[in-house]
Amino acid sequence: MSKTSTDPARSSVVLRRQALSGPGMGSRWSALFYAGGNVDEATLTRRLQGAVDRVEQQMSTWLPDSDLERLNSAPVGAWVKVPRDLTHVLAAALEIGRLSAGAFDIGVGDLVKAWGFGGGSRVPDGEGIAALAGRSLFEPPKTLQLDHTGQRARRLAPRRLDLSGIAKGYGVDELARVMTEAGMSSWLVGIDGEMRAEGMKPDGSPWTVAHEKPVPGEREILGVLELSGAAVATSGSYRHRMEVGGRMLSHTMDPFRGAPLESDLAAVTVLAETCMAADAWATALLVRGAKDGPALARRLRLSALFVRTDGEVEATWH
């Protein structure tokens, strides 16, 4: 599917709108861009697919042989050699966890499994849930240690790590890297609603991304975001839910309660320079709630949009 457009700055060059996509990270990745006729779509598609596959192979909890799962299965205290990208994401996750006072916690892997979400999960087991409920998990210095020089990591506590709140965003950043290295100056890339854009369209307008209304079972638009040189990610309690005991539970874990999040926020959308940061902060602010979330976003100068469960909207744009 494509259409042609003329670059006003270079009227002799006809640019064609091109759309590439592929499977990855439990969803699909996409790339939209305008270019002349000299783009090798097959090669670019392979490079984009390869970037997403590498992130998934390193950070997935669904692949038993992923680098993250190797770290999870290693004995507590044992150093494990990990790829540089995984080390980078783990370090970013710990820092955002620190800045959010534990609202973003990658040590919730046991909770995710106990409540029936994530790779290898089963229907929730009452005894397993009771053992985890109410346990605050955020203790970065006592949970994980990183050795950047040696590209190693080791768990310091028997807790499973889960990067589902940040890995997809990093995958989008890797798509962006491939587009830039391929010489593209204007593009929109994304994975399952996490998006990053660069440059403008040939007509001088920015890329646009629809902001969905956070209503379960519906597909309505709340508004439209304009993107250029920025990334956007949304976390919410209205998708990826599961019914347990007659209650609909969110897949987002509350690390303070040791249980699925019960929030007065329906969704949080964050704009940032990287999609990795937007992805993680959207989760962290959702966990902080309708009162503490906006306050934290203002203190850290984060651009965020908060949609309460009663439909009220609050923005902290910077």
Rank of each mutant, 00 (worst) to 15 (best):
F138M: 04
H211L: 13
E198K: 09
T149C: 04
A167C: 04
D203R: 03
R135K: 13
I166H: 02
L146D: 05
T143I: 03
G204V: 10
A197K: 05
G204P: 10
E198C: 13
V178I: 11
S136G: 15
D147M: 08
A167W: 05
L132R: 14
G183W: 03
I166C: 03
G150M: 08
F138A: 08
S164A: 11
R152V: 12
G134N: 11
L175F: 02
M195E: 09
T180W: 01
A131P: 07
T143D: 00
R135Y: 01
D125R: 14
V178W: 06
A167F: 02
R154Q: 05
A157F: 11
P124F: 08
G193A: 08
H211R: 14
G199V: 11
T149R: 14
S164N: 13
D192S: 15
L188A: 09
T208F: 00
G169L: 03
A210Y: 08
A130S: 07
I191F: 01
V209H: 08
G169W: 01
A133E: 13
V172S: 04
I129M: 15
E198T: 14
L156C: 13
P141E: 08
Y170A: 03
R160Q: 07
S185C: 02
H148W: 06
A157K: 14
E198N: 14
T180A: 02
E198H: 14
K201P: 07
I166M: 03
S205R: 15
G190L: 06
F138W: 10
I191M: 04
A210F: 00
T143S: 06
P140R: 06
E127P: 07
V189L: 04
Q151Y: 08
T143G: 00
L144I: 00
H211Q: 13
A197H: 01
T149K: 14
G193M: 05
E181G: 08
L137M: 11
M179W: 02
R154W: 03
F138T: 05
G204A: 09
F138R: 04
H211T: 09
A133S: 12
K142I: 00
M195K: 09
S136Y: 10
W207R: 06
R155W: 12
R155C: 09
P140I: 03
L156T: 12
K142V: 10
L161A: 04
G183I: 09
A182K: 02
K213E: 15
R154V: 00
M200L: 15
A197S: 06
L146N: 00
E194M: 07
A130G: 01
A153H: 08
R177W: 03
V123I: 15
P140N: 04
V172D: 02
R154Y: 04
P140G: 06
V178T: 10
E181N: 12
L132Q: 05
K168H: 01
G204C: 09
L146H: 02
L146G: 02
D162I: 04
I191H: 06
A167K: 01
R160T: 15
R160S: 13
T180P: 02
M200R: 14
W207E: 05
T143C: 01
S136K: 11
E212I: 12
R160D: 11
D203N: 09
T208W: 00
G134F: 08
L161Y: 07
M184H: 07
P206G: 10
A182T: 08
S185M: 05
G134T: 10
L156D: 15
E174D: 12
